[in-house]
Computed example of a mutant assay.
Amino acid sequence: MVKIANIALGEFPLLLAPMEDVSDPPFRKVCKANGADLMYTEFISSEGLIRDAAKSVQKLDIFDYERPIGIQIFGSDIESMREAAIVSAQAGPDLIDINYGCPVKNVACKGAGAALLRDIPKMVKMTEEIVKATDLPVTVKTRLGWDEDTKYIVETAERLQDIGIKALSIHGRTRVQMYKGEADWSLIAEVKNNPRMHIPIFGNGDIDSPQKALEYRNKYGVDGIMIGRASIGYPWIFNEIKHYMKTGEVLPGPTLEERVEVCRQHFTHSLEWKGDKLGIFEMRRHYTNYFRGLPHFKPLRMKLVQSEDIQEIYDTLDEIAQTMSYEEVER
């Protein structure tokens, strides 16, 4: 049984990665329904939280059906991060997660996210202050290092564990790599197999099929896997991995009707959480992913992304289910 502090996650948990503009409550709801064991909010700016910025505060919304769930925060100032952890804890999550892995320029160039990989002492000090500031378990998500010459993750993991984090998720790339090239899990395995380490170690990067999930579990020995991009438009991946690990059987992919139904649920949750206008707008980024591989989908996609009428969007989804033939393609 894998545990983060006293939070039981099962024998081999599958985690939904925190993804900006993706891992909101509507998306998390469909992922939870399809087998995600632990989820995180989108990353939240510490400065936004302590300034009470509306967009940041809204990201604190969590619901009981999502549990266990962590709130993830990022920032460059230690005191701001400490205060943000206190604010986040008041929202009632099961844990607080710190983002030391985001590689995008508008985060890293401000000294947050993966930028902390260039200043490990500051990363450790920041983490220590957050651990002291809350009674909740604190976890960390990070990368192997800033670049090929700074892959200090084995030592960094020890130092973070020593000051009290309860789990560590590692993306198998450096910041310089961004999302290019193949993720290197060998250093993730080195962290996991370090006899000094006793907290759960979760691997992240390139897991896009049940077969690869099982291969990487067996090869690298991690305690669980965090899945990000492969779940976008395909929340079924969590249950597919679980089924394959349990039985060795590859489940058939979702039918077109199942894709339409989950997309419809996602849209409904989006309207409920964000309101009509924003719910319609922010759902537009998901349609292509739900119906990837669908022949002649472009005209219907245009209807979905251009419509501002809720019933018309539902009707278009019905039209997809009724009139289109879906040819299953490899993800």
Rank of each mutant, 00 (worst) to 15 (best):
Y179I: 01
D208V: 02
A230E: 02
Y244I: 08
K180Y: 09
P210H: 01
D223F: 04
K219S: 12
A189V: 07
R196D: 09
P235M: 06
R175H: 07
V260W: 01
Y244H: 11
Q211N: 00
P200V: 06
M226C: 14
Q265T: 11
P210Q: 06
Y234E: 06
R173W: 03
F202T: 03
I170R: 04
E190Q: 15
G221A: 03
R175W: 07
R259H: 12
E240G: 04
T255Y: 00
G203E: 08
H198I: 07
R173G: 10
N194T: 12
M197T: 13
S231R: 06
I237D: 03
G203K: 06
G275N: 01
W236G: 12
I199T: 00
S186Y: 01
S186R: 14
E258Y: 12
S231C: 11
G181W: 10
M245W: 04
W185P: 01
S186E: 08
L278H: 09
N204W: 05
I170P: 09
L214S: 04
P254I: 08
K242Q: 09
Y244E: 05
H266P: 12
T247L: 01
W273N: 09
K192I: 11
M197P: 13
E272H: 13
R173L: 10
E249H: 04
W273P: 00
V250W: 00
V262D: 08
W185M: 08
Q265G: 03
P254F: 09
E249R: 05
N239D: 11
F202W: 08
L251T: 02
A189F: 03
L271C: 07
H266D: 05
G275V: 10
C263M: 14
I241V: 06
